[in-house]
Design a binder for these strands. Structure first.
Ligand SMILES: [Mn+2]
Ligand SMILES: [Mn+2]
Ligand SMILES: [Mn+2]
Ligand SMILES: [Mn+2]
Lengths: 159, 159
DNA sequence: TGTCAAGTGTAGCAACGGCTACATTCATTG
DNA sequence: CAATGAATGTAGCCGTTGCTACACTTGACA
């Protein structure tokens, strides 16, 4: 109860505008997105691996992300603590129901963002790279706008 | 020199597809973006503050980001190590030439992304929040596609 | 059936970005 | 000019995500 009130600023520092709160809100979103995006990418990747060859091994997960296996291990351990995956020593990794449904949501979102960038005219290569980052910073409203654009373009589009 | 070659997989683990490298490349981009995005947001914010009231004080920077002042301090120290800002004890923070030019680039990029989301029909509030995250994950090609879309829409647009 | 390399586990290090608690400096103002 | 509170500095904690080095399991196959 002093953040919105104008500080008297005995020092030179300018009064804290409401600007500050508006900005701070956006950065809170960013920080929260960063906390969840690793989990999102991992469950999506695990689902892909299970889809592709029936199981998700630690070494393959690490390989896909381009990190060392201890790094992947620590993240898998955290996902297990959070109830997204199960894993037993020296066995492959499985998704819980919660993990699977998160993976499905992320996969759809990923595909919308990717299709959107391609529909905008971005090359496949850059679209793939950018989608991997953008997907985690897209609100429901923006995602719907992306989806609508894809539909519109491919509906009235070329060919 | 064994990553692209098909592993013989003495265990059950499936062969490492070229898929792995394609994906790993995208995630390398993400990790590198994460390393630079804090610096980008901070120099942009410092430039804004100097623009708005002539100087950038630590307390105002922390307030805009919604973090504690020791957190902001550590980041400012890192930016100084990296040659993006200068700061002396109990004084306000200044940008180096390098910092200023990074700030200008980031500001332009931020504005393009924001204008793009608004042009797509996203509400101001969500556009501001999403732009703050998306800006760091946009390739040159995608940024140009965004800019072209804004021009196109506002050229043939409503009003 | 044993061997042995691949896969997995674990220990320990670092940087980053959060925080709280407390010490210090500085400038307004009484 | 002294007091006082705001601003800044510092110490130390945490969790996350990187890494290397080394130990242990496992399963394919000789
Ligand atoms: Mn991603
Ligand atoms: Mn993804
Ligand atoms: Mn940003
Ligand atoms: Mn920005």
């Amino acid at each position: 109860m002093m953040s919105t009130a104008q500080r008297k600023s005995p020092r030179g520092s300018a009064p804290t505008l409401p600007t500050a709160e508006r900005h701070a809100e956006a950065f809170e979103h960013i920080r929260s997105a960063h906390q969840t995006e690793t989990a999102e990418d991992y469950v999506e990747m695990i689902a892909d691996l299970i889809d592709a060859h029936g199981e998700a091994r630690l070494v393959d997960i690490a390989g896909r992300f381009g990190v060392s296996h201890p790094t992947a291990k620590k993240i898998i351990d955290r996902l297990q603590r959070e109830g997204l995956v199960t894993s037993r020593p020296y066995r492959s990794i499985f998704l819980t129901d919660k993990g699977r449904s998160l993976a499905e949501y992320c996969k759809r979102r990923h595909q919308v963002v990717l299709a959107f960038l391609k529909a905008l005219g971005v090359s496949d290569r850059n679209a793939e790279i950018d989608a991997e980052g953008i997907e985690h910073h897209v609100s429901k409203e923006t995602l719907e706008a992306f989806a609508a654009f894809v539909t519109r373009e491919s509906g009235s589009g070329q060919s």
